[in-house]
């Protein structure tokens, strides 16, 4: 199956600042891919490169099999793009905007449009400039979903929205998921954890890893080993152990390379252990662990995984 999005060593600089640094990435068809990272990590720049809003300094990207640098005109018939920073035609009413956009899309589905309007409870007669941020985002969603795009790209779509609006939008998105590929960026891990199938982590313009959510969850374990007597932190810890620390008889770390036989390996490594607890981690905990453990170790994990 061809990936819906593929990038090869994609880079973008703004003066001396490297915003996107040699990113190679593949987004499988039908996936819900969440691109996460702190503010300023390069998520928006990457998305703008994919949408041909910005041009790369190096590398290339393909979106729906088209070179992203050639993405224009009718290529956007199959792509829905929503961004928190997007300027809508503020002078138009919601209905006016939908009426205006409808003829652009051969696949525009009036029934779906009606359904989305009801679902998002959008006031057709109100001008966009008079709508709240949440309502504007809903209008943007409706106008980007009504033509059943093959790919939906969302840049921080839920940022600053109240939980009710956020849930409504996620619900609307999930309903479209079976027929589309969704690529979204977010710095709020909790909101994407529930529905993303794939995740990529961006830090300072570099993609630290990109994998299926289930693989990621399976790979990380919060490990607590209770030893029989106080012991210093062992030297030469595996690079895959993050945030390793000891306190009295307790050794605590995050294992970023957990496997089926990891418990047995740990038992072998710590024969005096009274207890070994391995807890699954939430996405938030995983990213905090990566972030706190520092860039070096995190990158080495990524490199290890790539190898």
């Amino acid at each position: 199956m061809n990936p819906t999005i593929r990038t090869e060593s994609l880079s973008k600089r703004f003066g001396r600042t490297v915003a996107v640094d040699g990113i190679s990435l593949a987004v499988p068809e039908g996936s819900i891919y969440a691109l996460v990272g702190a503010n300023g990590a390069g998520k928006t720049t990457l998305i703008k490169l994919l949408m041909n809003i910005l041009r790369p300094n190096a590398g290339r990207a393909e979106v729906l099999g088209i070179d992203s640098a050639k993405l224009a005109g009718s290529s956007f018939n199959r792509i829905g793009y929503v961004s928190e920073n997007q300027e809508l035609p503020e002078g138009m009413t919601v209905g006016g905007m939908l009426d205006y956009l409808r003829p652009f899309y051969p696949s525009w589905d009036p029934a779906l449009e009606l359904q989305l309007l009801r679902q998002f409870d959008l006031p057709l007669a109100r001008k966009l400039k008079h709508l709240s941020r949440g309502m504007k985002m809903k209008a943007s969603f409706a106008s980007s979903l009504a033509y059943r795009p093959t790919l939906i790209i969302l840049d921080e779509p839920f940022s600053g929205l109240d939980p009710l609006v956020r849930d409504e939008l996620i619900e609307g998105l999930i309903e479209r998921a079976p027929e589309t590929t969704i690529f979204l960026s977010s710095h709020d891990l909790a909101e994407i954890e529930s529905f993303s199938s794939h995740v990529g982590y961006l830090q300072q313009g570099r993609l630290l890893f990109s994998e299926e959510m289930s693989t990621l969850s399976n790979r990380f374990r919060d490990v607590t080993i209770t030893l029989s007597e106080p012991s210093p932190l062992p030297t030469e810890l595996p690079a895959t152990w993050l945030e390793a620390q000891t306190s009295d008889c307790v050794l605590h770390f995050v294992d970023s390379d957990f496997k089926q036989d990891s418990p047995r390996e740990l038992a072998g490594r710590f024969p005096s252990a009274r207890d070994i607890a391995l807890e699954p981690m939430t996405l938030r905990q995983i990213f905090l662990a990566i972030a706190k453990s520092g860039r070096g170790s995190a990158i080495s994990i990524a490199q290890e995984k790539e190898a």
């Binding site: 949408m51 005109g73 792509i79 793009y81 997007q86 300027e87 809508l88 035609p89 652009f104």
Partner: peptide
């Protein structure tokens, strides 16, 4: 300027407009 050509946040640049 209704479809302004400078900037990267205009809604129309990611819509199927033929230039």
């Amino acid at each position: 300027l209704a479809e302004r050509l400078v900037g990267d946040t205009q809604f129309w640049i990611t819509r199927p407009y033929g230039w």
